[in-house]
Structure formats: C-alpha cells, structure tokens
Design a binder for these strands. Structure first.
Length: 256
DNA sequence: AACTACCTCAACCGCAGGAGG
DNA sequence: TCCTCCTGCGGTTGAGGTAGT
C-alpha cells in the first residue's frame, strides 16, 4: 500500500487474515457480540485495528454470508439497482440477502460493467408477463426521501452515460419531456426470471425523464416498491426495491 | 518451463455523518 | 455550538491466481 499505514504505526497487524485470527474473531463475537469495534480487538486478543475486524466480519465471517458465484438473477438485480442508485453499494447490498457491498462492488467492476458495455447497454428486463402486485406507493418530496436532486441526479448521470438517460423506459421512447403515467392498477406488471421459479414485479408503463435537471423546482417523487417473490434464493425470502419516481407535480421556486 | 499480462477479490484508506459529552 | 469518538461507506490497492505467449 502507498498510503500511510495507520495500523502498523500502532504495532498492529495488517494484510490477509489467518485462520487462527478468524477463529478468535468468530468465537469472540459469538460469545459477546461485536459491541464497540474499536475495543474489540483488545478484548478478543487480536493484533488488529477495529476497522479491520469489522470489515473481516462483515465481508467474510458473518454466518449469513452467501459465498460463491452470483446467479444471473442476482447480476440482473445489481445492474438494475445500479441504474437506479449509482454506486451506492450498501443500498444495493441491502436488497441482496447474503451479499456484501464489497462483493457487489467487485462484481460490478470485474464483470458487470464489461457485460453492460458488451451488450450495448440493453435493458435487462425481458419477457414480461402481466400480473399485478400490491403496490405500496406513497408520495413524498425530494427533500425528505430522495434527498433531492443530488441523489436523483446521481443515477440520472449514470444513465446518461450508459443508457441514453432512461430510468426505466420502453424501447421506442423518444420524447425528452418528463412524462409520468398515472399510477393505477395497470402500472404493475410481472416479469419472469429465467428459471420461472420466481416472479418479479415491475412497473409496466413507460416514461422518460428530462435530460436537464430542473433546479428551479422542488420535485416530488412517488415511492414504489417492486421486487422478487419466490424461491430462487436459498432462504426463500421475498424482497422489494423502493424506487422513487419523479411526479408530474413540481413546485415552482422563486428565483433568487 | 519461464515470463508477462491480465484478472479477481480481500483488505486498506480517507471521509462523512451521527451520537454523545 | 463545538469537539471527539465511532461507524459505515465508497474508492482504491496490490498479492495471488490464471491465461497467453
């Protein structure tokens, strides 16, 4: 490493973990919980900094970590979530049980980015079958839920470079205006994933978002959830994404 | 077999933000 | 309000593995 070795300075070990260290960390946390990470290595008798222990536990030792290759479904979810959220790996990881942000980040940089480039940035949702799910949508303002244009534009920016500025859109969309469909029963559709053992609820209508952020507006967003139900994950759990969709309504701000 | 180039992924770093005094 | 401590996040690094020559 080029950067200042903070742990070495204090006589602490760094670099790859040994099996012994792993075992010490596991048994300590199983007995006492992790509590204060900074204090943990001293209490457990490890010559590591707390940060290192925390990372090792979260990314490798935690019992619910799912090891092994990512399934194609998981990869598609990552791609979709990355389109929506940008490099917010922890948020993406929260929707993939058993996967860590570090792992997802690595997969993205090593596989998915290339995959996307090679596949000409095509949308990953295919073969939609229509079936409604129960939508729990609620209106909220950008300032409270999506932290406004900064959050929204982060994935908007991403889309500019990778997907011609679409959030979720149909192939034939041409307009650059913001065109939000009303959210009603027909909003939701179901897209099947490859193995047909689970179903994915997706918004069925299409819309576009403007190329230019409207900084003189406080924009409102509607929150919608979509996700998987089914048994294609080991734990059989359902999970849902929350997405924020720019509403037709926006509030004019006075010019300063 | 030896060397090089490329890839993968665990681990590190600095920073931001929340909590508490 | 300010300061310190702690945690979590995202970006980056580099050792080890693998493929190609």
């Amino acid at each position: 490493m080029v950067r200042a070795p903070c742990c070495e300075k204090m006589g602490l070990k760094k670099g790859p973990w040994t099996q012994d260290e792993d075992q010490i960390l596991i048994s300590y946390i199983q007995k006492h919980g992790h509590g204060n990470w900074r204090a943990l290595p001293k209490l457990a008798g490890l010559l590591r900094c707390g940060k290192s222990c925390r990372l090792r536990w979260i990314n490798y030792l935690k019992p619910d970590i799912k090891r092994g290759n990512f399934s194609s479904e998981e990869e598609e979810i990552i791609i979709k979530m990355h389109e929506l959220l940008g490099n917010r790996w922890s948020a993406i990881a929260a929707k993939l049980p058993g996967r860590t942000d570090n792992e997802i980040k690595n997969v993205w940089h090593t596989h998915l980015k290339k995959k996307l480039l090679n596949s000409d940035s095509k949308r990953v949702v295919s073969n939609p079958k229509i079936k409604r799910s129960d939508s729990n949508s609620s209106t909220l303002t950008s300032s409270s839920a999506c932290t406004s244009s900064s959050d929204f534009s982060s994935f908007s920016e991403e889309n500019k470079s990778t997907n011609n500025n679409s959030m979720i859109k149909s192939e034939d969309t041409e307009s650059e205006e913001t065109t939000m469909p009303p959210i009603d029963e027909s909003f939701w559709s179901e897209a099947t994933v490859e193995d047909e053992s689970s179903t994915m609820m997706m918004p069925s209508n299409s819309w576009t978002i403007s190329n230019e952020p409207q900084f003189n507006h406080v924009e409102t967003f509607q929150q919608h959830s979509f996700g998987y139900n089914g048994s294609n994950f080991d734990d059989g759990m359902d999970f849902w994404y929350d997405i924020f969709i720019r509403s037709e309504e926006s509030i004019e701000l006075p010019e300063f």
